[in-house]
Design a binder for these strands. Structure first.
Lengths: 118, 118
DNA sequence: TTGACATGTGACTAAATGGTCACCTATTGT
DNA sequence: ACAATAGGTGACCATTTAGTCACATGTCAA
C-alpha cells in the first residue's frame, strides 16, 4: 500500500499522528496561529516539554505525511498550516445526523454524573 | 495523573485507543450495530484480521478505558455500545464555527489539485 | 453440583515508536 | 565567496505496544 501519494492518505497515518501528545500540542499551536515556522513551533513545544529541535521536526514530518499539516516554503523558512479536513472525516465516520442529538443528551448525562460522584 | 476515575478521561487514552486499526474496526462494527457481545465482535474482527479472542478482548479493554465504548453486563454476556462523545470533543478541539467554511473551501481546492496533478 | 459457555488476567515475545545525536543541504545578506 | 541562519537525514537506543498463551473466574441450565 502506498504511504503518501498526493491526496490519497492512509487513515492509519492520521490516527497514528494524533496519538502523540506533542503532535497534538503542535496542532493546537497552529490552530491558535496559522503559518508558523519550525523555529517558532520549536519554542512553543520546548516551553512545556524539554525536546530538541529534531524531535519537533520529526513530529512535523509525521503530521505532514498525515496531511494534518500543510506546508509552504518561504525562502529558507517553512511555514506550517493546520488542515482540519481529516479531523472532519473522523467526526463524520462515527457520528451521523441521526445520532447527533443522542450524543448531546449523553454529554449532559455524563456531566451530571461527574458532578455528583467523586 | 489519574488514568481513569469515573468521567475524567485522559485525552491521551482516547487518541491512543483510536490509533489502532483493529480498534477502529470494532468501533465501526458498533456504529453499525450497537450492543454486541465480545463473541460477536470476535467473529467480525476475525473475518478480516486473523486475531485470537484474547486480542479482541484486549482491544475492547482499551476502548473501554478510553470511554469510547460503554459496557453493560447481561448475564454471562457483556454488551458493548459506542460512545461518540469523545469523538465530538476531537472535532470541537480543532474545528470551530469560524474556520468551518474554510475547511469546506480547502476540500474543494485539494480535490481540484488531485484531479490535475498526477 | 456439574459441565459448558462467556469472559478475565498476568506473563511473555516481537514489532513499532519517541527521542537524540552527528552530520548534511539550502538560502540569505554582506 | 563566505558566514550565518533555517531546516533535513540516517543511525542509534529506550520505551511502549500488539499479540498470544496458559490459566482463572463467573454464570447458566439440567
Amino acid at each position: 500500500m502506498v504511504t503518501y501519494c498526493r491526496g490519497v492518505i492512509d487513515e492509519d497515518l492520521i490516527f497514528k499522528a494524533l496519538a502523540d501528545g506533542t503532535r497534538r500540542l503542535i496542532l493546537d499551536a497552529l490552530h491558535t496561529q496559522s503559518g508558523q515556522s519550525l523555529g517558532a513551533l520549536e519554542e512553543i513545544v520546548a516551553d512545556r516539554t524539554e525536546m530538541s529541535r529534531f524531535g519537533v521536526a520529526k513530529h512535523l514530518k509525521v503530521l505532514e505525511a498525515a496531511d494534518l499539516v500543510i506546508v509552504q516554503r518561504h525562502g529558507r523558512q517553512k511555514l506550517h498550516y493546520l488542515n482540519s479536513v481529516p479531523i472532519r472525516a473522523i467526526y463524520d465516520r462515527w457520528i451521523d445526523k441521526y445520532t447527533e442529538p443522542q450524543v448531546r443528551a449523553l454529554t449532559v448525562l455524563k456531566q451530571k454524573a461527574e458532578t455528583h460522584h467523586d
